[in-house]
Amino acid sequence: MEPHAPRVLVADDEDDIRALVCLAVRRAGCRVVTEAADGPAALDGARNTLPDLAVLDVSMPGATGLEVCSALRADPSTAGVRVLLLSAGASPEDVARGLASGADSYLAKPFTVAGLVARVRELAGGVPA
């Protein structure tokens, strides 16, 4: 891994999905700096590590990905963190709600690993691993 590889936070309460997302992040040439399994841990992690990109599941205990995203945008120190939301909700309304929370991009589950790698690379600026 490049020492200057883009730094990514991954938050999802499903262990299997989180591991899959971490793998895709690494394949995109990025480094996972924080893994979180709920909303508050994701927010703390983002404030502590100031990642280049936060990949957030929408449905998480404690605070949803949308709430975490809004909180990141409201805090000047984390307002610049790019956010990719992952959600099982795939309707246009779900996507619109996600983007309205301030997210840069939205990917509906189930996603393909190749698709996620491309999206992470696009948002975090990583190079292929």
Binding site: I17, S59, A88, T112
Partner: peptide
């Protein structure tokens, strides 16, 4: 729908790998 799509994400993602 959410509860079914989430495990399906795992199944399809890991199959792809």
């Amino acid at each position: 729908s959410h509860e079914l799509r989430t495990p399906l994400s795992s199944i399809l993602g890991y199959l792809e790998l």
